[in-house]
Amino acid sequence: MVNQEPTGIVMLNLGGPRSLDEVEPFLRNLFLDREIIQLPVQERLGAFIAKRRAPKLRKLYEAIGGGSPLYDWTARQGQGMAERLDVLCPETAPHRFYLAFRYTDPTSEQALRRMAADGVRRAVAFAQYPQYSCTTTGSSLNELWRTARRLALAESFEWSVIDRWSAHPAFVRAMAAKVREGLARFDEAVRDDVVLLFSAHSLPRRVIDRGDPYLQEVAATVHDVMCSIGGDHEYALSFQADVGPVAWQGPSTESVIRALGAQGRRHVLIVGIIFTTDHLDTLSEIDMEFAEVAREAGVTDFRRAPAPNDDPVFLDALAEVVADHLHGERGCSRQFSLRCAGCTNAQCREILNPARPHRQPPLHRTEPVPGVGRQPALPGSR
């Protein structure tokens, strides 16, 4: 039997400026977000930092075509996912996707209003970050719940959450397929000598020290993908997009590329292991900046595994992740209910008006946790 009310799938992401005019507003929204960064006199200082950084960032976006393609790729992914879900889960069809970005349109408010107008009752908050971090999935969920309350829509939808999916077999298969596709671009005579360099967005060390699970989940994805592709390629994990005067999770991707060159490694395939679409981190930082670093370091054959974007295998994976969630008994992952050791956010790990039983874990700390402090902004997917 087909469901008469549409099921809403809210695809959460940080977003990215789609034009050069949107760059400064994007940065301003980022630096005014106290959940991600806390500054003295935040309104003034955040706006100042955004204005100061905007010209440099505009140049980077101009070099990749004038804006971020994140919106277009995510919309294509949502469409392909929804079409597949109607076949996989006819009992919850029709399925409609809604984009909810933190710092650009469409916002959580726009997504919620559209859902209400479409008559959605059952909703799934689907984080587009396969690996969980409080700076990405956690903050996006918190913004979604705050917005629903502000719009008096707290009781309008019954929610469940896909908070992490990096270990899902379909996702691992899709990423492994991209690694194989990247390897196929090397001459067969040197293919066995290619070093696989998995690169992920870095996090400030203080976030990791607080207990954020991102690091172990990224490493687990790398392990699963390597098991899936087989063979015995040498590989490494590194971290990119570390900016600002704070300690970041390392080693940096740039330093690893230079080290590989110094070791005489000439064939490197870089894999954006957390990036499900092309955006600034792939098109600018990897394809331009790191490619130049590789040339300087003597890496003569430097290539990137393609991002999943709208590859049918990846669209299948998105649909399978949601279908398994809809058919399952849980309203979130088992791990979602475990707070970080240094958690200080009372809203953390909440599910608003849950469709399935969910008990938000209490916030209880009697003494300070070493390494916990204010954290800088995380650029995230752009």
Rank of each mutant, 00 (worst) to 15 (best):
Q77G: 10
G78Q: 12
Q79Y: 09
G80V: 10
E83H: 07
R84E: 10
L85T: 05
D86F: 09
D86V: 02
D86W: 04
V87F: 03
V87K: 14
L88E: 11
L88C: 05
C89Q: 13
C89W: 02
C89R: 15
C89L: 13
C89A: 14
C89S: 13
P90F: 07
T92S: 15
T92C: 08
P94Y: 02
P94I: 08
H95R: 05
H95W: 12
H95P: 04
R96G: 13
R96C: 13
F97W: 12
F97K: 00
Y98A: 10
L99E: 10
F101P: 01
F101Q: 03
F101Y: 14
F101T: 02
R102F: 01
Y103K: 01
Y103E: 01
Y103G: 01
T104A: 14
T104C: 12
P106T: 04
P106Y: 02
P106R: 01
T107E: 02
E109Y: 03
Q110P: 00
Q110V: 09
Q110N: 06
L112M: 15
L112S: 06
R113F: 03
R113H: 11
M115E: 13
M115L: 14
A116T: 10
D118P: 08
R121M: 00
R121I: 08
R122E: 13
R122A: 12
R122K: 13
V124Q: 00
A125E: 00
A125P: 03
